[in-house]
Simulated scan of single mutants.
Amino acid sequence: MSLDLAYNNADFIPDGASYPDRWIEEARAWREREAAVGRARLNVAYGTGERQKLDLYLPPGKPEGLVVFIHGGYWMRFHRDVWSHFSEGLTAHGWAVAMPSYTLAPEARISEITRETARAVETAAALVRGPIRLTGHSAGGHLVARLACGGGELAQEVRDRIVRVVPISPVSDLRPLCDLTMNGTLQLDADEAEAESPVLHLAPDVPVTVWVGAEERPAFLDQARWLAGAWGVEHRIDAGRHHFDVIDGLREPDSPLVTAILA
């Protein structure tokens, strides 16, 4: 099996091509509803770039703290507007949820995206007091894991507030990606792939749960297992879930995924 095929998700998910359009419509409805009742702060700049903005979704009362969700798309696709509704299960528990966009490849290298998302977390942290929990899906799972394992990307006062990290279906070892066709866009070289691979960094000193769907491609099952093994952390395999619906639990206040993030 070619590596390109191994990392292809949509073609192996029933009606996989329909998911982005569905997400966009559901996200728009949620965003408009939350903005109408004053629980959405949209287009908060964390830098000067066009995509260096975040949306902040607030609970009805004083926030318990902050969850930052970083979206996936192989660092090449999507926008925060696609995922707004996935804040629903967390705000229901009283947590504020920040969702940043970031500059996409090839305009930014993955190492630059890591630094951008660090600035997004710091900006959101200045808006919401209390503990911080990081989660993200796919490439976003990579980014939250990368931020959690250190290297100077996050200001220490923000790092000290992080209490839990839940990478969902993360790409934790970037070295295999160097041989993929998509690397024509990502422009990874061996040094950057090594430096940006969470599996090659020390584990963070906060609780981590690596989450992955049981029906995901073997490559993503491997990536999740590699990270959990390298860090010696909890590894949860979500029965019946594939790479696209593995995040559905974020919409459900009582889901196992929301419970894991807020544990």
Rank of each mutant, 00 (worst) to 15 (best):
Y57P: 00
L56D: 02
D55L: 10
S87F: 03
H71W: 10
F69M: 09
S87Y: 02
G65V: 03
H79K: 13
F86R: 14
L58I: 12
Y74R: 12
G65T: 05
G61M: 07
Y74G: 14
S84P: 12
Y74M: 13
F78H: 15
W83F: 15
P60D: 12
H79E: 15
L56G: 05
M76E: 09
K62H: 09
S84K: 08
G61W: 05
K62E: 15
G65C: 02
G72K: 00
G61F: 04
V67D: 01
Y57D: 01
L66P: 07
F78N: 14
G61C: 02
S84A: 15
R80D: 03
W75Y: 11
S84M: 04
H79M: 06
G72R: 01
H71F: 07
H71V: 04
V67W: 00
G73A: 10
P63Q: 12
V67E: 04
P60C: 01
F78R: 08
L66I: 05
H85S: 10
L56T: 00
I70D: 07
L58T: 08
H85I: 08
F69Q: 02
P59E: 14
F69N: 01
L54S: 04
L54V: 06
R77I: 03
S87W: 03
V67P: 03
F86G: 01
V82S: 13
K62M: 10
D81Q: 11
H71K: 10
R80P: 06
L58M: 13
W75S: 09
V82Y: 15
F69Y: 14
F78A: 14
W83H: 05
Y57L: 14
G65Q: 04
P60G: 05
F69I: 04
G61N: 09
W75Q: 13
V68N: 02
V82K: 07
G73Y: 07
L56I: 11
H79L: 10
L58D: 11
G61R: 14
M76K: 15
V68M: 15
P59Q: 12
P63H: 08
